[in-house]
Each structure stands twice: as structure tokens, then as C-alpha cells.
Amino acid sequence: MLNCIRAFFLERNVLEVETPLLSHACGTEPQLDFFTTIFEFAKPEKLFLQTSPEFAMKRLLAAGSGSIYQICKAFRNNEVGRFHNPEFTILEWYRVGFDLNDLMDEVEALFAELSEYKFESPKRIFYAEIFEHYTGLNALVFSFETYSAFAIQHEIQEVITFCGKNHAIWLDYLFSFFVQPHLGENGLCLIYGYPGCQSALARLNQDNSLVADRFEVFLNGIELGNGFYELSDSIEQNRRFNNEIQLREREDLPKVVKDKRLLAALESGLPDCSGIAIGLDRLLMILVEAETISDVLSFDIERA
């Protein structure tokens, strides 16, 4: 699998890079949980193990690296399950000058080679369309009443309590449980046009500000990765960082350090680009038809 990926990018003149796993700063998303460690030299300093190589790679892009890819370890605390191990392997790549469609084309091409064309031809579906198909709900316009009615109808009243009026959590829940299991049966499925409240580091769509320029990759009902038309506006990025830091404080989550070096890099100018991260352990799971992620790891966290 790794050979195939490297050959794929070599052929397309995308440079393989390596960036630090340890960083002074980290992502701010409230849903991420970090591993930290102490750098003992001189004045002890807290360092974070990366949750993805995104920030460092964007700094390379801003410095003029051109298109790059990386295969590395990433770490997310408190994530253990059939599809999760707190230490896992990511393939992340950025394509300068690509928009989201170009990147989706490339993802399809890569998967076709990796799977030796054994899957059915890939599908591309608009988020709101598939969401409505399986739930009958409008994903872009939140209505507490209709969402709650759906929960009552499906006897999942507890969801109303913990989602409350938070549209993003409702979408996370409903999509994970009612939509995702149907995605990409024996084939690749790319879902694009995520609602704006789930934009993360993507741009908002120019023609429809309700949706973000983001897509996700599903294969056999399993989520493999996230692609973005990358946000390059440092002011907007800073605003989202601050929002998320405030949200973390309100919910009493561990403190994070926002990445000023990333903001400086964005300020100096990130080229127009699209990027994506793919979970390689899960991809391998599907390719070898493994039941759990531990089947494709030498030693999972329980045995590490």
C-alpha cells in the first residue's frame, strides 16, 4: 500500500516531506484531545503531539514548497474503538492550484490504484441531499422542533437532551448513525458541501455561504478522510481559533495553545490549494477486510 502511494505521488511530482511530530502549538477544535509532553531543556516547556501534520505542512506551503505529501503518525487522546487507536497513521497531501473538484478527481484516481480497481465506480453526493434522503431533515437549516420530532419517532429521545440546540452536534449524530453506514457500499463515496457550521479549516463556498468547501471520503460505510479547499485568510483563521478557544474554556476543556506560526505563515500568503488527510490504518482494514483496527496494527494501544 505504501509503495503504491509513493509511486502515485512520484509520478505526479508531489514532494514527500517530513515535519515534526512534537509542536509548541496545536489545533483548537473542541473535539480534539491531546497528548502532551514536557521539553526539559532550560525552561521546561509543554509540547503537543500532533493530531495531524496540517499546520506544519501549511507553513511549508506558505514558504513555497509547492505540492507536498506526508505519511506520518498522528495522535488523538481518548479515541479507542473498532475504528480508532490513539496513535495512527495519516496520509496527508496538499495540491497547489487545485480546487475541491480537482482534489476529488485525484482521490478517486489514488483509490482506484490502491484497490486495483476492484470497487465499483466512485460516487459524489451533496451532503444535504444524502442527509435528507436518509433522515428527511434539512441539514443546512436547523429546526429544533423537526430534529426533535425525528428523534422521538426513532426512539432516541436521549439525543434531544445532549444535542440541545447545538446544530453541529445534531448533524454529527444523525450523520454518523443514520447516513454514514449507507455510504459507499463496495465503492468509494465522496460527500461534499458540508454545512458551514462544520467547516473546520475549509473555506465557505463562494456561491452558497451555508456550505463549506469540504468533502469527506467514505469506503464501505467507513470514514477515511477529510478534504478541504484550504482557508488562507489569516484573519478568518484567527477568528475561528479564538472562537474555538472560547468554546473550550466554556466547556472546561484542557487549555490549548494557538499556532501563531501558522497564522504568520497564512499572513505571509498561503497559495491557493486543496488538501486532504486519509487514515491509512482504516484504509488497510478495508483492503484486507479486517474486522478491527487492531488487526492491522503491530500492537494496538492495549499492547503498546
Partner: peptide, 14 residues
């Protein structure tokens, strides 16, 4: 206890 989490977003336990 099954851990369910979208890549970007809230985690759940079913």
C-alpha cells in the same frame, strides 16, 4: 460499548 466518532466532530458512544 461502541465508540463512534466523525473525523471532525463530536464523539459518541453507542
Amino acid at each position: 460499548n461502541e465508540f463512534v466518532k466523525p473525523g471532525k466532530g463530536q464523539a459518541f458512544n453507542r
